[in-house]
Amino acid sequence: MEIFNQIAPLKAFIHAQKQRGKSIGLVPTMGALHAGHLSLIEASKKENSITVCSIFVNPTQFNNPADLLKYPRTFDKDTLLLEKVECDAVFYPDNAEMYPETSLIKFDFSHLDKVMEGKFRPGHFSGVALVVSKLFHIVEPDHAYFGQKDWQQFAVIRQLSEELKFNLKLHSEPTSREQDGLAMSSRNLRLNEQQREQAIVFFRALSAAKTILLSGKSISEAKNLVKEIIEQQPGTILEYFEVADSKNLNLLENVKDSNRPIMCIAGFIGEIRLIDNMFLD
């Protein structure tokens, strides 16, 4: 497995592979890898000759400096995991390589980045779009893979890719979960034992909301149920629960107004913020 810290050698490696007619898959990550990330690597390996995993804790997508400082960084462990699944190359740049000067560019995705995550994390998706644009230009992948857990991010990147005419195919892979339903997340590493037990409340709330929505209850009733479930769990705070159209992210008042609705939730276990979602399929 090749490890690159600089853009130029990585681009030379990619160019040589493409000269040989090999396809390139990209899995962008911020490290602290878990089984969900590895499933993205495996999905890429099935469809591409060469799989590149990027590991970069992108500062421009953190609107909370404390959150950036506390984000888990486990590069040595990450490389061992990537070697086990036979990833071909890792791009592990530092901030100076990705942002040699302070970036002046800001992205605005209209309503896509004003609801849910965008509402509570202003500027977050501008930073995501900036770093993903850089990665797409650097790696020039044929395919790029993202997890469903960050569905709003995927919707934003899909818009970015369509409007800027990136010549690649995007893939959203199903959320990987622990046995008790907790969505796998790098932030789970920060949970202590008690918080880890509490964290499944978001999955329980989504599952309960799905059950009553599919039985014909209203979104308003589902919101009340979710609020009640979260409030019954000590140490947890609900930030939002919304039902949205999975393509345009318009918030719904009736599930019948969308061909494929998605429920999205975010909240805190102590000071640790977690998100999750679930389709109403």
Rank of each mutant, 00 (worst) to 15 (best):
I229N: 10
K217M: 15
R196W: 09
G270L: 04
K210L: 10
V201A: 12
L252H: 04
M184R: 11
D276L: 03
D257Q: 13
K247E: 15
A244S: 12
I237S: 04
N277A: 08
S185F: 04
Q232P: 03
S246E: 11
I272T: 08
F268M: 03
K223E: 14
D276M: 02
A266N: 00
V226P: 05
Q198A: 14
N254K: 14
N277V: 06
A208R: 08
L214W: 07
F203T: 08
P234Y: 05
I265P: 01
S258M: 07
Q232I: 07
I272K: 00
A266L: 00
Q233D: 12
Q195G: 15
A244V: 11
E253W: 09
V255D: 04
A222F: 09
L252S: 06
T211R: 13
E197V: 13
M278P: 03
N224D: 11
N192T: 03
E253I: 11
L251T: 15
Q233T: 15
K223L: 08
R204M: 09
I230V: 11
L251E: 14
C264Y: 09
K217Y: 14
D257A: 15
I230P: 05
L238S: 04
A266M: 00
L249T: 10
K210W: 07
N192F: 06
N224L: 14
E239C: 06
K223H: 11
T236K: 05
I265E: 00
L214K: 15
I219D: 00
E197R: 11
R204L: 12
S218C: 06
N192K: 01
I272C: 03
K256V: 08
N277K: 03
S258Y: 02
S246F: 10
K247P: 07
L252F: 09
N224M: 13
A208L: 09
R273C: 04
N250M: 15
L214M: 15
E231Y: 04
F241R: 01
S186A: 15
L206H: 02
L213V: 06
S207F: 08
